[in-house]
């Protein structure tokens, strides 16, 4: 069943069409990565889904049409995460920041404390709880922002390049954690990015270019279209690019996302 569907979306900035008759539907409980280069329409789509941009369309989320009447109800159940979390922090400490939205919903302090402990441990930010968010580094801020979104137990998590500043070493841990939420709690994840590495964890990869879906499929099949991806400026993960090149020399015959596996195939 579809948790989100966009039908006949038309949107333009001045006289430039960003989307013209765009359609997309996303299944409940799935993880969809929407990739595209700069200017493909990713952020515009996020803004439209958040109800921040007016568009001509038929969008339904949780079965409700996205309009003035429903937008607040819908937003309550969606966690939005943007690329620069700086603009969003309002409190003196990370702990207050995490508690902020739940306090506004009049949740009991005991429950809030329990939740803070749970979420901060999962994201490995429990040592930062007493810090001022403005003193944190870019990657730490993004982790705190993610924690804030998870506190509310959203049904849909929409990430707009939200893991950009997180270290490569830590990225896998965060993605695995998101996968846990995705599979265990059936949180639908829609991730807008140009880092195709996330395809490793997602159920579906959609590639946008100038407001049109040009590739839509599963890993590893989608990477057969690697040339198209590179042409529109997407960065193909290192292991995929390397396996593609080794395939040309007939050293291996599959595409791999994992370096270890790739090397075992090469050295067998």
């Amino acid at each position: 069943m579809d948790i989100l569907s966009i039908k006949n979306l038309t949107f333009r900035y001045n006289d430039k069409f960003i989307f013209d008759n765009f359609n997309l539907s996303i299944e409940r409980g799935s993880w969809v990565t929407i990739a595209g280069s700069n200017g493909a329409g990713k952020t515009t789509l996020v803004k439209i889904l958040a109800g921040l941009e007016k568009s001509y369309s038929n969008i339904t989320i949780f079965g409700l049409p996205l309009n003035k009447k429903n937008v607040y109800d819908i937003r309550e159940k969606i966690g939005f995460l943007f690329d620069t979390p700086d603009n969003f922090f309002a409190c003196e400490t990370v702990e207050d920041e995490l508690a902020f939205s739940l306090e506004n919903m009049a949740v009991a302090p005991k429950t809030i404390r329990k939740k803070i402990k749970e979420v901060s441990q999962k994201l490995n930010i429990d040592s930062l709880l007493k810090e001022n968010p403005s003193n944190l580094s870019g990657g730490e801020k993004q982790k705190v922002a993610l924690a804030c979104a998870l506190m509310l137990e959203p049904r849909i998590l929409i990430l707009d390049d939200a893991l950009l500043m997180i270290d490569v070493n830590e990225r896998d841990d965060i993605l695995k954690l998101l996968k846990e939420y995705n599979e265990g709690k059936r949180v639908t994840i829609i991730s807008f990015t140009h880092d195709l590495y996330e395809a490793k964890y997602s159920d579906r990869l959609v590639v946008l270019n100038e407001g049109i879906i040009i590739i839509d499929g599963k890993f590893p099949w989608v990477f057969n279209e690697e040339r198209v991806m590179r042409k529109i400026g997407l960065e193909v993960p290192f292991a995929v690019e390397l396996s593609q090149k080794l395939k040309v020399y007939k050293i291996i015959d599959t595409l791999e996302l994992d370096l270890e596996r790739l090397v075992s195939l090469v050295c067998k």
Binding site: S37, N38, D83, G138, L164, M165, H194, G233, L234, E235
Partner: peptide, 12 residues
């Protein structure tokens, strides 16, 4: 500071 952050491959 992070000159390539948020850039696609060609721009990078």
């Amino acid at each position: 500071d992070e000159p390539t952050i948020g850039l696609d491959n060609n721009s990078k």
